[in-house]
Structure formats: structure tokens, C-alpha cells
Computed example of a mutant assay.
Amino acid sequence: MPYYLGLDIGGSNLKIGLLSEDNSLIALQERKSGEFLTAEQLMEQINEMLSTLLTEQKISKDDILAMGVGVPGYVDNDKGVILNTNNLSFYNYPLRDKFTQLTGVPILLGNDANFAALAESKLGAGRGYKNLVMLTLGTGVGGGIIIDSKLYTGFNNSASELGHHVIRLNGVPCACGRQGCFEVYASATALIRMTREAILHNPASGLAQYAKEQGGKISGRTAFQAAEL
């Protein structure tokens, strides 16, 4: 029986899904990605996850027809190269060739939010609509645009990098080099920064006390969890 794989390389998590020919999700592997510093270490971790998944499901790599790989940032789809990512250590990295050599599985590489928009238009909430915009919120902010039922990528495949549109002139510096990008105000990373700033300026607050009780560990959920107490 033939299968497909979907890999999501996020700024915080790695996810590999095993799918049947009718796009049904059979199994999912998930691990943290933020602790791995280099692209090569990340690739080793992904290969280990893939091997574990296939072993648990008793499936051979020969049964995998192809794998779709979504990454945050700028991607050269034709060459299979990650040009740059703000939240991961990929820069001009030939991921498609590297991963094909490592696993022997054919790879289709693209921007994660573009792939998400395409999936929603074909299989999810966007079915039946010719035009849609999808916004992805996570470690960063991404976007995907569908026009006339086709993925719109624009110049250099960067048309839908919605997270790096400047919404505040001379605002907070962004990892992309600009200031005031949407991403620095609306992502999980932004929530963590703003929570830390609030604690610093209000050390006697309930938020500061809650964070202290959690051992000082701050996540994008911390402020919301403190507000529920």
C-alpha cells in the first residue's frame, strides 16, 4: 500500500505525519525543534523521527511515494533550497537534495504557510472558494494566498510573507532586519517578549507571581494562564 509523508519544520516543533492515498492521517510524530542549533542536527533529528514512525507502523521507505516539507521563511521551490529562515538555522540550505540523499524519499519543498493555504483550499475550510487568504500564527506569523484556485507566490516566492509587513513605523526590531513587523506583535515569540516586559515593569503583579511559581519559565500561554487564576 502506498503512503505519503508530510513534514512541518517549525520554529518550536517538528511534526511528521503519515498519510494514506485518500489523505487520511494514519500516524503523527512530534518533537521540539528549538533546542537544535544547526541545520545538520535538525536533519539528523528529522531522520530519526522518520525511522521511528515507519518502524512503529511497520512500513518500508519503499512504500513512501513522496514527502511534502514545509518550512517557515523564504524558499526556492524549483531548486529545493531554503534561502533564509528567521527562526531556524537554515541559510541557502539545499534541503531537498540533502533529505533525498538521507532518506531516498522524493521531496517537495515549500513555505509552510503556502502549503497550509493550499491544503485548506483543497481539503479544509477553503473548499468551494476560488480566492482565500490564510494567516498562520505560531513561533512567527505566516500567510498563504490562493487566487483563482491557484497558489499565489509572487516575486521570489515571498508575496505572502504577511508576518513581515511593517505595521508600526520604527517599531520593535524583527529578526528579518526590519522594525515594526506584524510578527513582532502577533506571534508566540511576541507574547513571550511582552510577558517578560510586563513582569519586569510590574514585579509585584499577579503575572510576575505566577511566572515565579512556574520557575520563571515563560511561554506564549503564560499571561493567559495567569489571568485565569
Rank of each mutant, 00 (worst) to 15 (best):
M1I: 03
Y3F: 11
G10T: 08
S12I: 01
S12A: 12
N13H: 14
N13Y: 12
L14A: 10
I16S: 08
L18F: 01
L18Q: 02
E21K: 07
D22M: 02
N23S: 14
L25K: 14
L25C: 09
A27P: 11
A27M: 00
E35H: 15
E35L: 04
F36V: 13
L37W: 05
T38C: 10
E40R: 01
Q41P: 05
E44M: 06
N47C: 13
N47W: 05
E48A: 09
M49S: 08
S51R: 11
K58M: 08
I59D: 03
I59G: 01
K61T: 14
K61P: 14
K61S: 05
I64Y: 09
M67A: 15
M67Y: 06
G68T: 02
V69Y: 03
G70E: 07
G73M: 05
G73P: 09
N77G: 11
K79Q: 15
K79M: 15
V81K: 00
T85R: 07
N87E: 04
N87Q: 04
L88A: 12
L88S: 11
S89V: 00
S89R: 06
P94K: 00
P94F: 00
P94W: 05
L95I: 10
L95Q: 09
R96N: 11
R96K: 15
Q101E: 15
T103I: 02
V105F: 04
L109G: 04
G110C: 05
N111A: 03
A116R: 08
A117I: 01
A117T: 01
A117M: 06
A119P: 10
K122S: 12
L123E: 13
G124Y: 00
A125E: 04
R127T: 13
G138A: 05
G140S: 02
G142S: 10
G143F: 03
I145L: 11
S149N: 14
S149D: 10
T153V: 09
G154N: 06
F155N: 12
F155M: 03
A159M: 04
V166W: 08
P173L: 00
C174Y: 13
C174F: 14
Q179I: 00
Q179K: 05
E183H: 13
Y185P: 02
S187W: 05
S187G: 07
S187Q: 06
A188Y: 08
T189Y: 07
A190S: 12
L191N: 15
I192V: 14
M194Q: 12
M194H: 14
T195N: 11
E197L: 05
I199N: 09
I199Q: 06
H201M: 06
H201S: 15
H201D: 10
A204N: 13
G206F: 00
G206W: 00
A208Q: 09
Q209T: 08
I218S: 11
S219D: 10
S219I: 03
T222W: 13
T222N: 07
Q225G: 03
Q225S: 14
A227K: 07
A227T: 02
E228D: 12
